[in-house]
Amino acid sequence: MTAVVAVAAYLPEGRVRIEEVAGRLGLSGMQAKIFRRYHKLGEVALDPHGGLADLLRGALRRLDGLRGQEHRVRYVLHARTFPTVVPYPHDPVGELCEEFGLGHAAVFAVGHHACASGLLAVDAAGRLLAADDDRDGLALVLTGEKAFTGEAQLVPETSFFGEGAAACLVSAAGERDRMLAYATDPRGEFDTDDQETALEFQRVYADTLAAAITAAVGRAGLAMDEVGVILPHNVNRVAWHQVCRTLGYPRERVVLDNVATTGHVFCADGFINYLTARDRGLLRQGEPYVMAAAGAGSGATFSAMVFAH
């Protein structure tokens, strides 16, 4: 059974108020005010002088569980919101693998689930390792991207992207944190610019994400009240309030601490929030928790993964 062995994250020190980003992107003062008042976004982490490799390196340097285990890493997966994150022929992930003694590993990107691709990568990593039948094998899942275009800075009417990265080591078996179930609902019908479909996406967003969580929890043989915490994607607070209403799940058990201070860090949110939950003592031994995310762009994907800590 797939297990997450170690997690680390990095957020650059720089913070930019959302009003400043909104102004640069041509949003009105009222639109920025809605983001702050209603969506409860405040500032985003940005590293204006660093590249993607600097973000990922920050997370890798903090991944103490990797030290001395480099030879066991068979796969390195970069989970991405955007299919292309640097121009050809740059390969920051490959270069980092050489830098961290992982040059022998198979390196590839995982995407097309947008911001839910991080969960897809953990699942894929576990499956690859299990198929190898090598109990010592490990996979490294990297998440994090640069918010360097308008599209990579703003989710219209929904969120602002921030920069940061996470790194996690996955094994095919192990005691912590064991993955109990994974549910994902790819919705290709939202791959359109049609306004009516965009409104429909808004209408079904909370219910569909809630359904993915319910499906994962059910597959794990659990009930929602057995779930200790939910580690969300940091899209905004109000979307998660709606999910909580649908689930009948207390919103104080959704780790929304970082929404106002980091923004939506692409596929890395769940792992960043994992560390916040751990530091706050919210993860208790043996207790199940859920990591969940919805991704949009060329379709939509709603995903949830249940772990036992």
Binding site: M30, Q31, K33, I34, R37, Y38, E157, L199, Q202, R203, H241, Q242, R245
Partner: peptide, 28 residues
């Protein structure tokens, strides 16, 4: 009215009437 123009309406209302409105529970 869209969800965004709806929120704009509530915040404009705040300014016009010099009131502070909790938008936490505002739903569709």
């Amino acid at each position: 009215l869209s969800s965004t123009t709806g929120l704009e309406l509530v915040l404009e209302l705040e300014e016009r009437l010099e009131l502070e409105i909790s938008v936490e529970e505002l739903g569709r």
